[in-house]
Design a protein around this nucleic acid. Structure first.
Lengths: 129, 129
DNA sequence: GGCTAATTGAGAATTGATTATCATTAAGCC
DNA sequence: GGCTTAATGATAATCAATTCTCAATTAGCC
């Protein structure tokens, strides 16, 4: 089963590479359509599934939301969601200091964590001020 | 539209009060059935919706999972999910120190945060050791 | 206890997200 | 440029979660 590079796939990957953070399927579709008007939704699902199988992109789950996807990063990181424009941004640092293996006082052994910050992005914050 | 207290509703609320953390609908149903064999799934959906409207319980969203519900708490808290038994526990403290309004160096104003810790609960950790 | 209407249980219906189908298009290879 | 077949686009089909329907039950009130 040879795999082919199509402009659909390239466009979708391009959208994810230039995104400010992880995107949901409809958002990927909308952004990719700007370059490729005829792009179908099913193709987005197929491309995302393949890119995920190939480890080019990762699925990111945010509380209470549809699956988002982002290109694979080297480091542990978290996300920030703007409560006004609803965009999700990638943060390059982790404000939590909990090394893997930490034993909490109540007996829970922490191996991983998942953090999402909420608030206003720079753009929305300056308009609100 | 007068509201009535039924044993179904009481049982469901009781399950949530004695839970170790937020529960999903099927789990609420399963636990409540232990006391009320005939309980239907639709009734769980209805009761949960009403309890939520009345602010008796809160919806808790964990990344990539169905909605969970817990009785309303006075204080900010987070959750711990055991990667072995899959149970979700309530944590009574917050390991993150980010006061509401904090401005991150990259321009994001943080108002809230959502944290989930993953690892092994005391029970599963001791068995694994 | 008896009345009235809210609530229930069971299953059908609906919904939104994702996947499958299939005729058509086009990537990769000669 | 042709050939082969993977990929596409449009839509139908599927799937799981949730809601609706309706006859039967029962809580609250007298």
């Amino acid at each position: 089963m040879n795999r082919r590079n199509t402009k659909q796939r390239e466009t979708i990957l391009g959208v994810l590479h230039t995104a400010e953070g992880p995107l949901g399927i409809p958002e990927i579709h909308a952004r990719a359509k700007a370059n490729l008007e005829s792009l179908g939704l099913a193709t987005v699902y197929r491309a995302v599934k393949r890119l995920r199988d190939e480890q080019e992109i990762l699925e990111v789950d945010l509380p209470g939301e549809e699956a988002h996807f982002e290109v694979r990063r080297a480091h542990h990181h978290h996300h920030f969601r703007c409560q006004k424009c609803q965009k999700v941004f990638e943060l390059d640092f982790c404000p939590l200091h909990l090394p893997s293996g930490t034993l909490l006082p109540n007996g829970y052994r922490v191996l991983e964590h998942h953090l999402t910050l909420y608030g206003l992005c720079q753009n929305c914050d300056s308009r609100a001020a």
